[in-house]
């Protein structure tokens, strides 16, 4: 139990420190790298909870896809972050006040936390003991939770339609690739034989 607790504090500590560095780092590329470290530590916390599937998904999706995309965007955009931060100090007092209010509210909630014994018994789908949690998720995701699964699919479809509607532009005069036309070219259509008179160009 001691080892697990030690790892919990290690992961949690590094997580909080790197999350802080995400907003404190001067260089935006460093911020993204700190973010990746934060994701890895969050994955470590999931592992400690026995949710190895979530841990792997977090690494694959967030580190593998999202953070790398962030990195691309940050590197490609020419934003002077130092300029953006100007005036940051002016807003510190109000930010501190709001932060303090949230902290007090959170403490109020956390200190009144009583985990009701009935709540645990009510868990929607308890994980069977003899099963890895990938298998456990697989058992309910496409059966008990088919509705949620399909609805999430619809939400993603809308996101896709939205991205295309708002950004796709067909510019006139741009040469596009049309595989079938390109493959169907033959010497008769592609080559033109011209008689060139000597002394003149085409």
């Amino acid at each position: 139990m001691g080892l697990a607790a030690a790892f919990f504090y290690l992961f949690a500590g590094v997580l909080i420190a790197s999350a802080f560095m995400v907003i404190a780092a001067r260089n935006p590329v460093h911020s993204v790298l700190w973010l990746i470290l934060a994701f890895f530590n969050a994955a470590g916390l999931f592992l400690l909870l026995g949710a190895e599937f979530l841990a792997m998904i977090l690494v694959v999706v967030y580190v593998g896809a999202v953070a790398v995309l962030f990195l691309f965007v940050v590197m490609m955009l020419d934003i002077d972050f130092a300029e953006l931060r100007q005036g940051f100090l002016e807003y510190v007092p109000i930010g501190a006040v709001i932060g303090a209010i949230f902290l007090v509210e959170l403490l109020l909630v956390v200190t009144t936390w009583i985990f009701s014994p009935e709540a645990a018994a009510q868990a929607q789908v308890p994980i069977p003991g003899d099963m890895s949690n990938v298998a456990a998720i697989g058992q309910v995701l496409y059966t008990k939770y088919i509705l949620f699964f399909q609805l999430s699919g619809m939400v993603l479809l809308v996101a896709m339609i939205g991205a295309i509607v708002l950004t796709l532009r067909h510019k006139a005069g741009v040469k596009r690739q049309d595989i079938s036309v390109q493959v169907a070219r033959n010497p008769a259509t592609a080559i033109e034989v011209r008689k060139v008179e000597s002394g003149k160009g085409i």
Partner: peptide, 8 residues
Amino acid sequence: LQSLSLYV
């Protein structure tokens, strides 16, 4: 699902 469609 509703909100995302409305934003677009």
